[in-house]
């Protein structure tokens, strides 16, 4: 084969139908307030972990809702469970419980 010096790029476009929505379905049953997130970012702005690591609970929630489980897996352990986000969330999302649920699910425990 010729040496091209270039290659086919991976498409950045996300195809909705390729998302894995099984995790979000299970988490939602355990913590229904998940659906109330409006991505305002209050959780991420006051977050202890976000100041020193690339962690954003806002992003974790959106990736979870988009069925991007790998992205969730890469981030979720950075949370320190301090509870600041649950204190500030304007929509009353039970963020701390949400993180615990995601961790449990990803570690193989089945919540529902």
């Amino acid at each position: 084969m010729p040496r091209w010096g270039y290659k086919i790029h991976e498409d950045r476009q996300v195809i909705w139908e390729e998302g894995d929505f099984s995790l979000v379905e299970r988490i939602r049953l355990a913590e229904p307030s998940l659906c109330l997130c409006i991505s305002c970012g209050t959780c991420a702005s006051g977050c202890t972990a976000a100041q020193f690591t690339d962690f954003s609970l806002r992003r974790v929630i959106i990736q979870l809702q988009r069925g991007r489980i790998e992205e969730v897996r890469q981030e979720i352990d950075r949370c320190m469970l301090c509870g600041k986000c649950i204190l500030t969330c304007p929509r009353g999302v039970n963020t701390r419980h949400l993180v615990l649920c995601i961790r449990k699910e990803l570690s193989g425990d089945v919540l529902y």
Partner: peptide
């Protein structure tokens, strides 16, 4: 919010 083009 994920800063990616989306096709649905």
């Amino acid at each position: 919010l994920t800063a990616k083009p989306l096709r649905i």
